[in-house]
Simulated assay, not measured.
Amino acid sequence: MPQLDTSTWSITILSMIITLFLVFQLKVSKYYFPEDPKPALVATPKPVTPWEKKWTKIYFPLLLPL
């Protein structure tokens, strides 16, 4: 039974890996990857509440006149 010649396997496997790597790089380089979004400075408006415009007095029940 003849021996299997494996002397060319290393160069075949190495060239296959390099070729696959190059093909993968070419495929990936065609995609557009957007940049990271930058935080936008948003001015938050202060909510307008009716009790901030007028003076109110808090009455305690025990301090009311009889």
Score class of each variant (00 low, 15 high):
L14Q: 14
T8E: 15
V42E: 06
I18C: 12
K27S: 12
I13G: 01
D36A: 14
E35Y: 03
P65V: 05
P45C: 04
K38A: 06
Q25M: 13
D36H: 03
F24Y: 11
T6P: 00
I18L: 06
L66Q: 07
L41F: 11
S15P: 00
P37S: 09
V48Q: 01
F60W: 13
L66E: 09
K46R: 15
T19S: 03
P50M: 08
I11F: 11
T56H: 12
L20I: 10
Q3E: 15
Y59F: 08
F60V: 15
P2T: 06
V42L: 08
F60P: 01
I58D: 08
L66I: 12
M16R: 02
I18E: 07
D5E: 15
P2R: 07
I11R: 12
T19G: 05
A43E: 15
K46D: 15
L20E: 07
K27H: 09
M16I: 01
F21D: 01
L66P: 00
P39N: 02
K53G: 03
I17K: 08
K57Q: 11
V23F: 06
P65E: 02
M1A: 08
P34I: 04
W55N: 04
T44Q: 11
Y31R: 10
P2N: 07
K46F: 06
P50Q: 08
I58Q: 11
P2G: 05
Y59V: 09
M1F: 13
T49Y: 04
K53P: 00
F21Q: 05
A43P: 01
M1T: 07
V48A: 02
I13D: 15
T12F: 14
T12R: 12
Q25T: 13
F33E: 12
P34L: 03
V42K: 11
A43D: 09
L20C: 06
T6N: 08
L14C: 11
K53S: 02
V42T: 15
K57W: 08
K38W: 02
P47N: 05
E35Q: 14
K53E: 05
L14M: 11
W51H: 09
L22W: 06
L20A: 12
F21R: 08
L62E: 14
L41C: 07
F33P: 00
F21I: 04
L4Q: 06
S10V: 14
F24G: 03
W55Q: 06
E35T: 13
P45Q: 07
T49S: 02
P47E: 03
P50C: 05
L26W: 03
I13C: 11
L66A: 07
F21E: 06
P50A: 07
D36N: 09
P2E: 01
I18G: 01
